[in-house]
Every structure is written in C-alpha cells, then in structure tokens.
Design a binder for these strands. Structure first.
Lengths: 109, 109
DNA sequence: TCGCGGTATTCAGCGTTACTATGTACTAGT
DNA sequence: ACTAGTACATAGTAACGCTGAATACCGCGA
C-alpha cells in the first residue's frame, strides 16, 4: 500500500466504516476482511479496532456482544441517530472536497 | 471549518497544492489566498508553508526567489518531473478512493 | 514621524489519525 | 499438543494539519 493512501485515509476511513455500518451492523474482523476484499489490501486490523473504539466513545454507534461459534465473542456495531447525523456531515464534507478535486483534475489536462 | 475536513485534508491537501502547481508556478501566500477563495475558508497559512517546505525537501518542486514590490521576496514554486510523477500517483490513489466512496454513497440511499 | 494594514515567510508545540508489532483468547482439525 | 483461523486489544511511532506567535518589507493616512 503506497504511503500516499495512508495519509489520504486519515479522516476518510472513519467515514467509510460509518457508511458500512449505515448499511448493516457489523463487527471489526468482518469489516477488516471486507475492506481488504475491496482493495484496501493492507489495512491493519489494529487500525479498525482503534477506529471502532473511537466512534463508540463518541457515541456514534451502539454495541452488542454476540457469541461466535469460531472464537471469542464478536462486538457488533450499529449506527445510531448521532452516527447517522455525523455520517451526513461526512458526506457533505467529502462532496465538497471531491468537487474541488475533480475540478483540479479536469484543469490538469 | 469542521474538524472532519481537517482530517480529510491530510494527504489530499498535498495533492491539491501539487495540482495547482502543475497548472502554473505559484508562491505560498498566493496559494493560500486562492484556496480560501475556493471555499477552504480556514486553511492556516502556516499549513501551506509547512507543506511547501516538505515537498521541496522531497524534490518534487523547483524554487526560485523573486523580489516583491509589496513585501519580502516571494518563493515561487514550480512542479518538476519528479513532482509530476508523484502527482500522477496521487490521482491514481485518489481515483481509487473516490470510486469506493461513491460506491458506498450510492448504496447508502 | 508613527503606526496600521496588507504582503510574505517561518517555526515551535499540539492533537488526531493510521501503521507496526505484539499479545490475548477461543475453536476446530490434525 | 500443535497449528490455523477467528476475534479483539493496545503501546509506541510517524505524518500531517492547526494554533499562535514572530519577523520583515512596503505604502498610506493621521
């Protein structure tokens, strides 16, 4: 994974995870696996767990502990009202950023 | 400026500045002013100058000192070959990220 | 003449975030 | 008993943008 992506992910990774949780409840290991399948090849597990702890402490998600047949209990996260609001803001901000960048890219050639 | 944007800018701001310099040579104060006009209302001057120092040290830009009628001499930056190459990578990475996010946004409603 | 505002750059210290590396724990298969 | 896969956690590090302040040069009005 290029170092550029690492820096670009700051701030966006959080939005990505919230967007995933907006679609369905999920747990850390699941999210990591899914992201890797999507091409985020080298996202570290630790990164996702730390991120989940952060958004939980900010009250953006609800957590439920669910026993697993294959290992230690899963912590299943789901987006709550505050989380949805925060995600809206994220989309606004990302839309803004995205527009400016598309503009620049067009001018570039 | 929301705190979300601050984090999202990490990594991308560098690409934005390089993209600007790909169009034309420019100096710090000028870039800051232009960004503010584009809606990046609260980008700190110090941020841009620090960024310019970084990309200079990585050899992505050439620098020329030009006297100004209105203050201390300007440091005019222009993108060199290495910078153009790096900017290409940036567009690739941003394209990748942008696609995944658009995907997620679509699924979101 | 003095100060003010606009131009222009620099720097130390801080907070946030993602990565590295490692450790823990539970289950199933060999 | 050992290994591999599942699942979570955390201490330490690097990178980046922000805050706040300082420095410097110019022209204009009081």
């Amino acid at each position: 994974m290029p170092k550029q992506i690492t820096e670009m992910l700051k701030g966006t990774l959080e939005g990505i995870v919230l967007a995933i949780l907006a679609g369905r409840a999920a747990y850390g290991y699941e999210i990591t696996t899914w992201l890797r399948e999507q091409g985020f090849s080298d996202i570290a597990e630790g990164t996702i767990y730390a991120l989940l702890v952060r958004i939980e402490q900010r009250g953006l998600v609800d957590v439920e502990k669910v026993p697993s047949e294959k290992g230690p209990p899963r912590k299943v996260y789901s987006l709550n009202a505050a989380g949805r609001e925060y995600l809206d803001e994220f989309w606004n901000n990302w839309g803004f950023l995205s527009e400016r960048l598309e503009q620049l890219r067009k001018e570039g050639q």
